[in-house]
Design a protein around this nucleic acid. Structure first.
Lengths: 226, 226, 226, 226
DNA sequence: GATGAATGAGTTTTCATTCAT
DNA sequence: TATGAATGAAAACTCATTCAT
């Protein structure tokens, strides 16, 4: 049940890139100006990632877009992958924060599930292309671990809620497994909702279907086994 | 409800790569020797894609692994992306064929759903890394369209089955929407099953959960509408 | 006064290409079919040279255009430069033949000059692009020598004519020098005529100007010597 | 009367090379060091063009000869053709400047013609091979237009001079046509003079012949019209 | 600190030429 | 003899990274 990623990272162990390269920022910007520089670089990276993908990302273009020189870029980031890692980190923070904020406790299971779905949709980065890029990037960029942490954390939140509504659940349901499954489903379905209707998020039809799927799963006794 | 991808392609419109580059094979091998060459190149590409990812793919390495010269490679494929596209095509064919083969008609809805799940698991490429690589690659490589076709085709198959068991379904269920949702869920869940237990496919626990999820969704009346 | 080229080759000693490569045909086609093959190859080369220039000439394209295989091409031509050399040779023959044919003896100097100009215009290859390509090609392709021969031969013809009309010429004119100069002028002016009015050759205005230039030169006594 | 090229470009519209490739410099060197680099690259290109021709020109050799890295070369020039274009541009400037400088007004037509010839000979690049290379290169390298401009400009200068000496000219001479013809002749003849006697420019014999040709043309009434 | 010029290893891609069938 | 598959050296071009100013 590991490896489930709710938001940022769909995939398991890193692959395709030498993992021993250090990807962490070189130093933290102290002065305000430096902080602005770093911020600009991260924003530029995110934009280019969204527009063109990782293949087309070059340090020169990032620097140009950010309005700084390559030299400055390398002052804060040791290599190209560190750029992408920084973007992943940056957005991870945002995601977790947003998710936590959207989360509330509710009286009924139905209301709780609604809250989950709402949180999932709301906390997705609004630009699905960036989301996708981050999803694909994280493991390649040395951020697979962090992905799993977030994933697990969200599954944990879900499990807590389920426990709170244990009496409404089908009795033979394993809460941990159910939580993991729901995390996966939420991830998938909100992905789809965003792809199909990027403009009108949350897409009500998708929300209704999703709620139905999850609620039915949680409350129906096991039928038709084997 | 487009853009659902069951097997090969999780994502929407291509991005991240200049689309006007032609990605189609340069010519078809006529002689047996040439056919073997092309085959070897595709196999080598698939291997390297699996092992190292698209970033690390170089035409030189593909040629080396395939035991041919770069020249031979370029005789049949106009560029690097065409290699990946060929792999996608190659496996798409296999997938559709496998899926069709695994498909059977059954008496009960439960049995039909079992059949779906079984087909989903069975027809996944056994190397999940390749599957993932293909998933990510397809849109970047000019194969987004084909992805949607396959997706839609599988959703269509599912819809047919649902229609056949209409009397067992919750009456307020839209068959087309349900089929699309199931396609998405199957894709995701079988992904996860493979990632978590690559050795023992099909993972029985995942299968049971998945069946439960889908059956509950299909048969429960809509409850707890907010 | 060497190096003057009337038709085919404007420039002096070969440069830019290793001269020790043999450029002569490999063998002469004996059978009719083989002769047709060689013919087709030369025609195809000439076309591609005209359309795309020497840079873009590849043996594969020549073979394709000629409707034969590369292998067949190499059966008759040892290397790429030999192709161009063959075209040069081929057209040289044609040029000389055409020039000889257009040449007639006339009563007056004016009529003789007219004849020269007419011959120059008529015997230019009708596709000026090919002409230019050949011009540039000859020295690079080991055919500089032949170019000079043709050049000299035409200058010789002109000198003969001048001698025949010696009494009409300015007395202090050196016939050999004059012939060489005229050869050069004819070359240039007919070039220009073709470039400016490719459709309507001979361009009457250019012909008149040219005649005036040459006749004035031949008949005026030397004036205004600095 | 376009398309006459006095110095740099003997031929008409570009051919033989894909024209949509951008040939302009990538960026202008700002720092002194960069300016030196660009200068070195242009000089090296000119040398290699002279010694070996365009066929044998490789970016690696240019860089080596210039004492810089390929990377530096590509920082300023987007491709190989841009190198040649830069050389053409560079020398065009020089040519026009030199021509303007050599130009003077004179009392008699004969003196004016002498001045033209002198200017033509003097302002030729001293290395005729480079001149030839530039001549052939200009159109292939996207510089045909510029060629025509220079051509036209020189013809214009000549026409002005002719107008100033209108009373000495044959009355039925069209000044514009005559200027264009003279431009062509000067180009050709100085070419030949340089080729035949590269060491002793100006070659007195050629100068005398050339003056005679032009003066006779300008002053003789039209004779022997067909 | 910031800049951007310089580097060069590493890739992609081409194409003349050979040779087994 | 004809074919066209295979070759691989060689060329163009990129881009992450360094470092003098």
């Amino acid at each position: 049940m590991t490896n489930l990623s709710f938001f940022v990272f769909a995939f398991g162990p890193a692959f395709g890139m030498n993992p021993q390269v250090d990807v962490n920022p070189r130093k933290f910007p102290r002065q305000a100006r430096a902080r602005a520089t770093v911020e600009a670089i991260i924003v530029a990276t995110a934009q280019l990632l969204t527009e063109e993908g990782f293949e087309a990302l070059t340090t020169a273009r990032v620097a140009e877009r950010a309005g700084v020189s390559v030299g400055s870029l390398y002052q804060y980031f040791p290599n190209k992958r560190a750029l992408a890692a920084a973007v992943v980190d940056h957005h991870s923070e945002k995601l977790v924060a947003a998710f936590d904020a959207a989360w509330q406790s509710h009286d009924t299971l139905a209301a709780a599930v609604d809250s989950m779905i709402r949180a999932a949709l709301v906390t997705h980065p609004h630009r699905p292309e960036l989301h996708r890029a981050l999803n694909e990037l994280a493991p390649r960029v040395g951020r697979a671990e962090k992905a799993q942490q977030i994933s697990a954390r969200i599954a944990g939140l879900i499990e807590t809620v389920l426990a709170r509504h244990r009496h409404e659940l089908a009795p033979d349901l394993e809460p941990a497994d159910a939580a993991a499954l729901i995390e996966t489903v939420l991830e998938t379905v909100s992905h789809r909702a965003i792809q199909d209707h990027p403009a009108s998020i949350p897409d009500e039809k998708a929300v209704i279907q999703c709620r139905r799927l999850i609620l039915a799963y949680l409350t129906s006794p096991c039928i038709g086994v084997g």
